[in-house]
């Protein structure tokens, strides 16, 4: 195999990993845009989405493609529930308070995962149609590597239509621009926040299904690392900015794969890469690549 085709293979892997980061990162950035809250439990919502799909495919008679649509919707409802239980009572509290609640919620979901799903890893039931290797000009690549970016782009088009063209989307943008003023304009804040959590969790679960198809090993703690990395992607792109989250996700996914591909000696440091990027970004340009450089209000 020539080095060009090898490079192309890495590129494809990087893009597909980046797509997944992007999908999860959107949930972080949308919530942060409106509530100024790092939803620590988002990575665990992602995990929940994967498990719901797993049980839906294996233990119900619903066809797998329908489960792939229902499970994210259920995950979205869990997202709404999470907000209502752990964040809503604290909406007027100091930011640290709600951050602690978010950390608590994250641990709760992880450990509920251990209680109900068991700590033993499970194998994700990947439909045969999504899981076979094709050869494209000498490069052998699993078909899922191509499906992931395509589905991601479709979801992003849908999201951007929703945000820019619908009234709810307009309300979301207004809330993230100026929470106080927007709430005075007759926007039903509770409804918008619930919808935001639903959409973020839905997209995370969609990412989760594709993650399961790509890396088919399920564990209750599987959401921690992708969650943290996607959050970093959101910060890199400029938190609160949806396009930024997508760009950040792709950059991080590509960077991670390329690091391992080009410098195999650093393979063990793969998980540290994202954090190094995070710290550099926070020090050099805390508002992120596409952030609006807002200064802290006194």
């Amino acid at each position: 195999m020539g080095s060009i085709s090898l490079f192309l293979q890495h590129l494809a892997n990087g893009i597909s990993l980046g797509s997944l980061y992007a999908l999860i990162a959107i949930g972080y950035t949308m919530v942060y845009g409106i509530l100024r809250l790092i939803n620590f439990a988002h990575g665990d919502i992602f995990m929940l989405g994967v498990y719901l799909t797993y049980f839906g495919v294996l233990y119900t008679s619903i066809p797998w493609w329908l489960v792939f649509a229902i499970a994210p919707a259920v995950t979205g409802l869990v997202g709404i529930l999470l907000e209502a239980v752990a964040y809503k009572p604290l909406r007027e509290s100091p930011r640290i308070t709600i951050l602690i609640s978010a950390i608590g919620a994250s641990f709760l979901l992880q450990n509920l995962g251990i209680v109900f799903f068991g700590g033993r890893p499970r194998a994700f039931p990947v439909p045969r149609i999504l899981n076979h290797v094709v050869k494209v000009r000498g490069v052998s690549i699993n078909v899922i590597t191509f499906i992931i970016p395509v589905v991601t782009i479709l979801l992003l088009i849908g999201l951007s239509y929703f945000i820019t063209k619908t009234k709810t989307g307009l309300a979301m943008r207004a809330l993230s621009r100026d929470y106080e003023t927007a709430s005075l304009m007759g926007i039903d804040i509770n409804r918008i926040i619930s919808i935001t959590f639903f959409m973020g969790s839905f997209l995370a679960a969609m990412g989760g299904i594709m993650w399961g198809a790509r890396y088919p090993q399920l564990m209750p703690l599987m959401g921690v690392m992708p969650g943290l990395k996607s959050f970093i992607a959101a910060v890199v792109g400029g938190i609160g900015n949806i396009a930024g989250a997508v760009v950040g996700g792709f950059l991080l996914g590509l960077g991670e794969i390329m690091l391992v591909a080009l410098l195999p000696r650093l393979t063990g440091y793969r998980d540290a890469f994202a954090f190094v990027v995070l710290i550099i970004i926070l020090l050099v340009k805390p508002s992120g690549l596409m952030g609006s450089g807002q200064t802290e209000k006194v």
Binding site: V85, A86, P89, L90, T97, I98, I100, S101, I103, G104, A105, F107, L108, Q110, N111, L112, G113, I114, V115, G118, G119, P220
Partner: peptide, 17 residues
Amino acid sequence: PGMRMVVFSIILILVVI
């Protein structure tokens, strides 16, 4: 397994709220 930490997470969230 895991139930212990479930209890502690719930305590944490309750205290915060």
